[in-house]
Design a binder for these strands. Structure first.
Lengths: 343, 343
DNA sequence: TTGTAGGCGTTATCAG
DNA sequence: CTGATAACGCCTACAA
């Protein structure tokens, strides 16, 4: 039996074609649109490619076809689980397909986002995924200039640049706070960090829910621009109980803050939920196993990533989806930290 | 003023060269090594490029030069904080430089790793970062065939493929368990999940430390191949205390497991550390704010990413570092969960 | 459904 | 230090 050399990397399309007994262009078609070949040749090319360990040369492909097969993805943070979950969906959905993902980290900076968009612009990506809906006018202009489909992920709102997939952060926060109100809590605090656009909208939802019930009080609100961390949650709660010792619940801008709040309660011997109810946001895995288990708002981050790639590839293949804005919704995961208030 | 309009609608190197009155290859040199040109031509090319708004075509460059300016990075998971921290270092260090990062997710699968390496191989990256030191022989063969510098990150060991930056997981685990032994604990359990190669070596360190003190007992060990999660930590502890109710401490394979163990202790009213000491691994941010604060092993993950890029770029620029294996060490962060045992 | 030409924009090679 | 000549591997026409 013949020994192939799958490690050489020097296998060209021509050689696959020769082994399969077809012309190079036929082999080329196989890799782009297998169904355009007759069944016999399709199989011959397929096995030839496998036998030789053929790997397409993307540079040559891009040069000849005048387009890269790159999907650019911009996220604000590499270490925030929320984006990591979304990214996993992106990579899972694009893996094995013809498009490769190019990731860039804006570090929550509009300026960086603009800069990175310009770089992508120069590379003519096949598609683009950006986080959120608060791009600067300059960024939006650059994107409009890019002749490719674009999906904004993580949230939805008016005036999509092209497509959107996410959910309403203000609605979700409104629902979470309403949940607390329904359960009998009235002096509900807001603990916020980072306060990026999505955090702002979660605050909006909190404020609207409180105002709707005539419960809003600025004293119950504490926020900072510092990045969210578990320790910070503890610090913020300390400040809040000093400022507003009468609070009976807190809605936290995310689960890390919520965990820090819980730890601080344990430290201060504040009974949860008897003395203080806690609700987080995102429903990270640890929320259910904390003691007591922590109520949170589940969002479909992995699905957002998958869906974004689906919409993008559909559009790139000439089938732009009917629904340009996809709402993936949310769900209140009611747990021990927000049991109905004992009267 | 005549100007040929290329199909792509973009300015080509040739046009820059014409405007500057030099040959294309001279213009080409300008963009790669300006100092190789005479001052006069250098300036002429520079201003011509600026005037025309020339942007190099990376695909053509890659095709002709047989190398892209891409650094490939392979990690086992997108959602594990440990790799995210390393990645942040990678992106921070490479941002603004001439190399762009191409990320791929092996999902802890050797098979996927091999497949992805073949793809990278086809793209002729300028450099490569892979996680860990347990690549299959096939993967190693592919990498040897890639004519580019390679850094293995996250751990160190014998026989580097090219370069390495990390630390010894077995030494770190040995130190963590020794810490418990020094503090008076003797019936120390091991709680492990995922059990990837690095987890295995952490177990090795545990076992060696226990054996060195004549304390090893297989009954104290519980492991699973399931992915590490906080809830799983609780489940494993439950199983362990059933199997070995006499344990007085646990060394957890990572911090998520440790947090789950702590929660389970809270649930079962097991006093920490009086009845059970806990030590985790990685020192994620929440460890210090838990109640009690949790002892862990700090590792320099961000620095690993930075250093890997530094070593790579140095090697690519023809200055391979003297030290091909860089040990970034670790530190035991002793906290409340492993206070000296009360006798 | 398949094949034939020619070129995509850049760089390696090897002279001068 | 500079330049002519060939690739690089694949794809877009168009034709059969």
């Amino acid at each position: 039996m013949e020994r192939k050399q799958p490690l050489s990397g020097k296998v060209r399309l021509t050689e696959v074609a020769q082994l399969a007994g077809v012309s190079p262009i036929t082999a080329s078609r196989f890799f782009r649109n297998p169904n355009a070949l007759s069944a016999g040749k399709r199989e011959r090319v397929e096995s030839a490619a496998k036998e030789l360990g053929y790997v397409p040369n993307l540079a040559a492909r891009a040069l000849a076809s005048h387009r890269s097969e790159v999907i650019g993805v911009l996220i604000p943070s590499l270490t925030n689980n929320v984006f990591a979950d979304m990214l996993r969906g992106v990579y899972d959905a694009s893996d094995g397909g013809r498009y490769s993902v190019q990731l860039a980290n804006t570090r929550y900076s509009n300026f960086q986002e603009e800069r990175l968009l310009r770089i992508f612009h120069g590379q003519k990506p096949a598609g683009l995924i950006v986080t959120g809906i608060n791009q600067t006018p300059e960024s939006r202009a650059v994107m409009r200039n890019m002749n490719c489909p674009i999906v904004q992920v993580m949230e939805i709102g008016p005036e999509p640049i092209d497509m959107m997939v996410g959910f309403s952060h203000s609605d979700a926060a409104f629902a979470a706070v309403s949940h607390l109100i329904e359960r009998g809590y009235t002096r509900i605090g807001f603990v916020g960090a980072r306060m990026d656009p999505r955090g702002q909208r979660r605050f909006d939802g909190y404020r609207d829910a409180m105002k709707a019930a005539s419960l809003f009080n600025q004293r119950y609100v504490i926020t900072t621009l510092s990045p969210s961390t578990v320790p910070l949650g503890g610090i913020l709660l300390s400040d809040l109980v000093t400022k507003a010792p009468d609070i009976d619940a807190v809605f936290c801008i995310n689960d890390d803050i919520a965990l820090g709040v819980l730890f601080e309660c344990q430290r201060r011997q504040i009974a949860v939920p008897e003395q203080l109810a806690i609700v987080g946001f995102n429903d990270l895995e640890f929320m259910g196993s904390a003691v007591p288990s922590l109520t949170s708002v589940r969002t479909n981050r992995y699905e957002m990533g998958r869906k974004a790639i689906e919409m993008l590839t559909a559009a790139m293949d000439g089938h732009p989806p009917q629904e340009r804005v996809v709402d993936l919704g949310f769900e209140i995961m009611a747990r021990g930290s927000s049991l109905p208030r004992r009267t």
